[in-house]
């Protein structure tokens, strides 16, 4: 059973959030994000945290990277964007057929 956590993020997020005690990989651009992700996928982790910037980089090369493991997208320290419910909307649409049910729920 995997019991560890991993984080792929920019340096500041790794320094802050990552210092709680997880396997951290620093990535600042698309190729670094890609190699860090490949590295993480070699091991089994309970949850892999990635920042929204990294998620965007990964999405370009691997559109279905979210399905590979239990991956959680967090706002990064540098961008501080809101997390958004985009990926959930896709799940809801798959199950229910319409996505605006989210507004009513």
């Amino acid at each position: 059973m995997p019991d560890k956590l991993a984080l792929i993020a920019d340096e500041d997020t790794v320094l802050g959030f990552g210092s709680l005690g997880m396997d951290c990989h620093i990535a600042e651009n698309a190729s670094q994000a890609q190699s860090a992700f490949d590295e993480v996928m070699k091991k089994t982790y309970a949850v892999v945290f990635v920042t929204d910037t990294i998620a965007r980089f990964l999405e370009e090369s691997k559109p279905d990277f979210m399905k590979k493991a239990m991956i959680m997208v967090l706002p990064g320290c540098n961008t501080r964007n809101k997390m958004g419910l985009k990926e959930l909307t896709a799940i809801v649409e798959k199950a229910v057929g319409i996505s605006n049910i989210m507004d009513k729920a």
Binding site: M1, P2, D3, K4, L5, L15, G16, S19, L20, G21, M22, A46, V47
Partner: peptide, 17 residues
């Protein structure tokens, strides 16, 4: 900052799945 946060490399969160 680095000294404060990287002081304890043993520190590792383990979770129960």
């Amino acid at each position: 900052l680095h000294e404060a946060l990287m002081f304890n490399p043993e520190n590792q969160v383990t979770v129960n799945l």
